[in-house]
Design a protein around this nucleic acid. Structure first.
Lengths: 195, 195
DNA sequence: CGGGGACTAACGAACGTTCATTAGTTACCG
DNA sequence: CGGTAACTAATGAACGTTCGTTAGTCCCCG
């Protein structure tokens, strides 16, 4: 009895859930295959290697996050609105793709050196934009915080709290939670004019 | 060439550094032994198992954090000062014991069910105190935030940002960074009377 | 419209390696 | 000289991956 119709995207999505739950090294190819109702060797018809799966997950997730951030910032002017938009985009990404984000946050060390360099570059680009917004706001006198970089790290990390807490079935929609965190970020940097 | 004088505490501390860097499953008993200049089986003269090492690391770290939190809150009255004290204690712990904290934050899933229950209980106790302070502050009208629990998660997570950024050799002492984060926390919950 | 060949994707078996752990032995220190 | 703690050797299990093969599907040619 053959099971047909397995797709590369399905393998990667399933692996992502398992990696997020048990970690990359804590998940075997057999685990992934069993979840899909298939034997482990069959996976190699769709992916090159286990490492290939990990990189595909993280590369796709980073591209999605970067695109969302860019879209959120497009046409938004002023440090306050920009920081709010960037934070909301960040938190929304965390809430909507918790497994992908968990893998990105915890499995950088499991990447090959070459793959790691590629992902870290994208991550730095993402974080760099947030840092730049806060630095601009401080220079313009709109924010008031002693150490902008320190605040940037705090903002970037904040979303993890939301991820571990948020359940889609809960009483608040993700956009609502994202707005709360946008407000947290503005308060944290000591924004003068907006709340 | 025999190497003598290995102690259980040394094994556990060394393992902690490696677990923090490469993860529990990414670290072999051989890796730990090599770092100590010893063969892997020799470790079993000092520890019961690899799992025993992991639990010892996390249990010690949680006890230390809980004690520090308790000491920091002792004799401090009022929601604002309490939140500041708790946040500073949290961040200081992160900055002073980064490896232990990293292991606690990332390897809960690698614990046996029995061990996991014990650690999670301590972690909940720790987080519960922070949650309670913020909830008290809101009830007393000293804080102003729509969802206290949400703010509590953000505060608890914030310290991770400091850990990934801070270097002991940097220009700021850990107590200085902790104070900054204490201020972040107060601003985040919309504290009325103190900054 | 019917048949054959290419293609996709599954299978079981086996590979070399690494892992945590145990057993048995040897050497140093007090 | 006894015990502690190191060693070497070996174990079974699990891992990622490769291999040769087979089952089902689709399309093109006659």
């Amino acid at each position: 009895m053959l099971v047909r119709g397995l797709r590369r995207a399905t393998v990667i999505d399933t692996a992502c859930e398992l990696f997020a739950e048990r970690g990359y090294r804590g998940t075997s190819m057999k685990d992934i295959a069993e979840t899909l109702g298939v034997r482990a060797p069959s996976l190699y018809n769709h992916v090159l290697s286990k490492q290939d799966i990990l990189f595909a997950i993280m590369d796709k997730a980073m591209d999605r996050a970067l695109d969302a951030q860019e879209a959120a910032l497009g046409g938004v002017a002023g440090p306050a609105d920009q920081l709010r938009a960037a934070t909301e985009s960040l938190v929304l990404d965390f809430l909507r793709f918790p497994a992908e984000v968990t893998v990105c946050n915890t499995e950088v060390r499991s990447l090959d050196p070459v793959n790691r360099a590629a992902i870290v570059a994208k991550r730095d680009r993402y974080a760099g934009r947030v840092r730049a917004i806060i630095a601009d706001g401080c220079r313009a006198g709109r924010f008031e915080t002693a150490h902008p970089d320190l605040a940037a790290f705090a903002v970037l990390e904040m979303g993890n709290g939301a991820k571990s807490w948020f359940r889609p079935s809960g009483r608040y929609p993700d956009t609502y939670v994202a707005r709360e965190y946008g407000a947290f970020a503005l308060r944290m940097v000591g924004c003068r004019t907006q709340m």
